[in-house]
Design a protein around this nucleic acid. Structure first.
Length: 491
RNA sequence: GGUCUCUUGGCCGAGUGGCUAGGCACCGGUCUGCAAAACCGAUUACUCCGGUUCGAAUCCGGAAGAGACCUCCA
């Protein structure tokens, strides 16, 4: 089978072989969060998707520079007419500096991403730290004749641009359609055309974040930061740009236009977009009241959840779907994922209990090849997981005596999980609470030894009483031939 | 309204022109004093209507339903 990585390039709408510009180096830029709100499921999906890409490329011996930005400028506009940002409102009410809000939610984001075992990017630039670069970019665009200034605000001239280049090539938009379909919102009379977008915006008196520029005291347009920061850290042309599908238009379309307008060429070679998340089949949205933050997920405090889910369950669940499919969250689906993932870890822990035999009935290298092929086929993590479950089945079969592993199989099997489940998919073993709490562990062993004695003298009433009480406390008991095993069940 | 995408068994979710992933649930069996776990086995699919084909859930056309985006909002 092929050992080449293919990824779906949004701009060509095809799977393309991934060939880095300067191997072994790979540059990736992913749109990170706007840190004015608590991190939610919509943040987890791109973070995990591109984390797996990052991990897989590193596993494949590439030297990857992964840049994921923090947006902390441009969205603080204090517009009391409509659509006021709740966080901004809160910041204002509590008399916080915008940077305090930014710091708080950046920390929250980092904390939750760490819980999801998302690796830190190589560079995490902030828009507010790159105002000069953004101004320089505007000047380039201006110099090339693709921008105009009105009342201290600078706008990108889409019409001028589209005479020379193709505006809409990423999203498939047609300019003529945009003429007729773009809504006319208030406060847009400065623009020549409704689809023009701001490069620099003059600050209103009540606007908090503002910088001096040659055009006005103001702030950069919201598409600009990614164009400026990606090329600053990854070069004029770089390999992969990722983000959520909702960013394709207008955000990424505008990024392309800005870069081409400034440099005369496109900067991104492969565009990758993850699909959205739904809750019980419905779009997740603040207005619909079905918005689930990561904190709510981890504590279980949300109407659609019956219990708390730990971060690895969420990660596992997200990876069970392909990143370009919509993924539906429901309590039932999460329960199923939790159980399945537990079973997988249980089997992994049981590898050590397999007694090696002379011959073998399993073929681990074949499954390993399937895993590699799956990842090479546009990061098909669901297939990798299904392959791992095939191994789970053979491990359990070996314990039950239906399969035979030789010494090499056992090592290969362990390596397979270590590489694919843990290193590349980034799942982690649960820390076994029995190891962390010696006293609990010894008390449970004590009780179960008493139960064993009761069983031996056929006092089943006593033995069942001990078992039932321990079970109701959340301890799962497994009887073996002459002994027992136990573990703590999740809440 | 425009552009695009999707529609798989009780639930989630892969996939390919014919050999019918995987997880969870359910059912039967093995094991067990009884359970649990595990193992073995069975059952339930491809929204609808046409067409292409020896053969389509997979390709083409149409219908219905769902979703995404349509500008300063991630």
């Amino acid at each position: 089978m092929s050992s080449k990585l293919f990824i779906f390039n949004t701009i060509s709408r095809k799977k393309e072989e991934f060939i880095p510009l300067n191997p072994p180096f790979v540059g990736i830029y992913v749109c990170g969060p706007t840190v004015y709100g608590d991190p939610h499921l919509g943040h987890a999906r791109p973070a995990i998707t591109f984390d797996v890409l990052f991990r897989y490329l590193q596993y494949s011996k590439y030297k990857v520079r992964y840049v994921r930005n923090i947006t902390d400028v441009g969205h603080l506009e204090n517009d009391s007419d409509y659509g006021e940002d709740k966080i901004e409102k809160k910041a204002r009410l509590e008399q916080l500096e915008p940077m305090e809000v930014v710091q708080y939610y950046s920390d929250r984001y980092h904390d939750f991403m760490a819980q999801l075992n998302v690796k830190k990017p190589s560079i995490e630039p902030r828009a507010s730290g790159h105002i000069i670069e953004q101004m320089q970019l505007i000047e380039e665009i201006e110099k090339n004749g693709f921008a105009y200034t009105v009342n201290g605000s600078v706008y990108f001239d889409v019409e001028a641009y589209s005479k020379k280049y193709h505006y809409g090539k990423l999203s498939g938009r047609v300019l003529e359609d945009l003429y007729s379909n773009t809504r006319n919102l208030d406060g847009q009379d400065e623009k020549r055309n409704p689809f023009d977008f701001a490069l620099w915006k003059k600050a209103l008196p009540e606007h908090i974040m503002r910088w001096q520029s040659k055009w006005s005291v103001g702030f950069p347009g919201w598409h600009l930061e990614c164009s400026a920061m990606s090329t600053k850290y990854l070069g004029d042309v770089f390999d992969i740009h990722g983000g959520g599908m909702d960013l394709i238009f207008p955000h990424h379309e505008c990024e392309i236009a800005q870069s081409v307008a400034a440099h005369g060429k496109e900067t991104v070679r492969y565009w990758m977009h993850n699909n959205m998340i739904t809750i019980n089949g419905q779009k997740m949205g603040k207005s619909l009241g079905n918005f689930i933050t990561l904190e709510q997920l981890f504590t279980g405090e949300h109407v659609v959840l019956t219990k708390a889910y730990n971060p690895m369950t969420i990660r596992f669940f997200i990876l069970q779907a392909h990143y370009r499919s919509t993924l539906d969250f429901s309590n039932e689906a999460l329960l199923a994922a939790e159980k399945g993932f537990d079973r997988m870890l249980e089997a992994y822990n049981n590898i050590n209990n397999i007694k090696p035999s002379e011959n073998s009935t399993v073929n681990i290298s074949e499954i390993r090849n399937k895993c590699v092929d799956a990842l090479n086929d546009d990061l098909s993590t669901p297939i990798v997981i299904s392959c791992l479950f095939d191994v789970v089945k053979t491990i359990n079969g070996a314990i039950a005596g239906n399969e035979k592993f030789d010494k090499q199989n056992i090592d290969d099997c362990k390596k397979l999980f270590d590489d694919f489940a843990f290193e590349i998919l980034g799942l982690t073993h649960e820390t076994n609470i029995t190891n962390n709490n010696k006293i609990l562990s010894e008390v449970v062993n004590l009780l179960l030894n008493e139960r064993l004695l009761a069983k031996q003298r056929k006092d089943f009433e006593a033995s069942d009483r001990i078992r039932n009480q321990l079970t109701s406390l959340g301890i799962e008991i497994k009887d073996t031939k002459d002994s027992f095993e136990w573990k703590l069940k999740k809440q």
